[in-house]
Amino acid sequence: MTAGRSAAVRAAQLRASARRSWWQRLLALLGIRTAHARRTAHAAARWAHGAEGEAHTARLLAPLQAAGWHLRHDLALPKSRANLDHVLISPCGTAIVVLDTKHWHRGKPTHLLGGHVHCGTDDRHSQVEAVARYAHRVATLLGLPAGQVAPLLVIHGSPITGGRLEAHTPHGLVHVLGTDGLLPTLHAAPHGRPNARAAARLAARVDQHFRPYQQ
């Protein structure tokens, strides 16, 4: 599955719904934007930004394949409406990174306040907790210890105060990074010795349990 595809599809669906009725099309031709049209356009823009961010993250991650990483993008989380933006299988074949991409306001710094991750004054900790839940669910489905599946949040746009954050959640620690810190963090993460066969076997298990996301 191409990174960001499901988010791009959702943006297109929202834009299409805004043009569905003859009345909506007439208002658009007349240059009149109703409150509903504005809300729909705003939601479509958010999904489109999300798709761009996921595609950008995938491009950043692509060089890891030469080092033995297996990369998967836009996977469905079983028995959930959620999707996994990126799943990374380490070269050692014993660790997985569940990585979520967010595109937050460029003019608002991301920081910790009272133990919660904020973008400017907006509390975004629920999104941090979500990626921790996803990682926990991945570990459960694959029968892996929770410590072998690491949740990671990469932020596009908003600058990260201090370069990176460590956010605590009920399902464990989540590292919150900007795009500049993504590859250095993954390269520096402790892994065992590369084992191409073990990595391929773990990637096959991921493919068995997590199918490409469909709207």
Rank of each mutant, 00 (worst) to 15 (best):
H118E: 08
H118S: 12
H118W: 13
H118Y: 15
H118L: 14
H118T: 13
C119E: 01
C119I: 11
C119N: 10
C119H: 02
C119R: 08
C119Q: 10
G120E: 04
T121L: 09
T121E: 11
T121H: 12
T121C: 03
D122S: 13
D122H: 11
D122I: 11
D122W: 09
D123S: 00
D123E: 00
R124D: 00
H125G: 05
H125C: 06
S126E: 15
S126K: 08
Q127W: 13
Q127G: 15
V128M: 12
V128E: 04
V128I: 14
V128R: 06
E129I: 12
E129R: 15
E129L: 15
E129Y: 06
E129M: 15
A130K: 07
A130R: 07
A130M: 12
A130W: 01
A130L: 14
A130G: 13
V131T: 06
V131D: 07
V131F: 06
A132K: 03
A132D: 05
A132F: 01
A132Y: 01
R133F: 02
R133N: 12
R133K: 11
Y134M: 11
Y134I: 05
Y134L: 09
A135T: 06
H136M: 15
H136R: 15
H136T: 15
V138M: 02
V138S: 00
V138A: 05
V138K: 05
A139D: 03
A139W: 00
A139F: 04
A139T: 09
A139P: 00
A139L: 03
A139E: 01
T140L: 10
T140M: 04
T140Q: 05
T140Y: 02
T140S: 11
L141C: 01
L141I: 12
L141W: 06
L142Q: 03
L142G: 03
G143F: 00
G143W: 01
G143E: 00
G143V: 02
L144E: 13
L144S: 10
L144I: 14
P145T: 14
P145M: 06
P145S: 03
P145E: 02
A146Y: 08
A146D: 03
G147Q: 14
G147V: 10
G147D: 14
G147S: 13
Q148R: 15
Q148F: 05
V149S: 06
V149T: 07
A150I: 08
A150E: 08
P151C: 15
P151W: 07
P151E: 09
P151M: 12
P151T: 07
L152P: 02
L152K: 02
L152A: 07
L152H: 01
L153Q: 02
L153W: 05
L153T: 02
V154Q: 02
V154H: 03
V154K: 01
V154F: 03
V154A: 09
V154C: 14
I155S: 01
I155T: 04
I155G: 02
I155D: 03
H156G: 09
H156F: 08
H156C: 11
